[in-house]
Amino acid sequence: MNIFRLAGDMSHLFSILLLLLKIHTIKSCAGVSLKTQELYALVFATRYLDIFTGYISLYNTLMKMFFLWSSFTIVWYMRYHNVVRRSYDKDQDTFRHYFLILPCFILALLVHEKFTFLEVLWTFSLYLEAVAILPQLVLLQRTRNVDNLTGHYVFFLGAYRSFYILNWIYRYFTEQNYYKWITWISGLVQTALYADFFYYYVKSWRNSERLQLPA
């Protein structure tokens, strides 16, 4: 564990806590894409299966259980909780996220480290996580005034993988033959997708104006 990875995990944790706070306290999911939440639930379900087969550390197990629990809880709130679901703008959240799942799965069948069930699912989860934010970014462009909590949620979600990139650089230089091309490339693509969001987020923060993404 290094400070970059810890910062990444804490940023990821914080982003989810922000979203849970928004949904649980003000019972609203306005501006939040259900499709991105469903993709993330699938990412965690396919990546964290190893909590049943192995043990790495208490931290690792607890974080995985929290990510699994929170992602499915958020999807449940947005689909079935009769107050929260009313604030879900489903006619704006129209990104065809199913079109992301199949290509990622096919790519995982073609490009992976080992051709085993767990490894292919793990690789699939990496590819899917790289593109999972797309429905949310599209929805932000359509939502005229993005509320602060949603903006902060997306920012810390994007920041987590950026910290992971620093972690991979750090580990590459401090550990012998440490390289994970698939993880690194997926992480770079994922972070690149946030580039323009980061730009507008910092700009709105600097000018202390509301966050607005150009349509």
């Binding site: 990875r5 995990d9 790495i56 550390s57 690792n60 793990w122 033959n177």
Partner: peptide, 10 residues
């Protein structure tokens, strides 16, 4: 390569 270290990240 120790598989544990292989998947020690979240």
């Amino acid at each position: 390569k120790n598989s544990k270290r292989n998947k020690d990240e979240l």
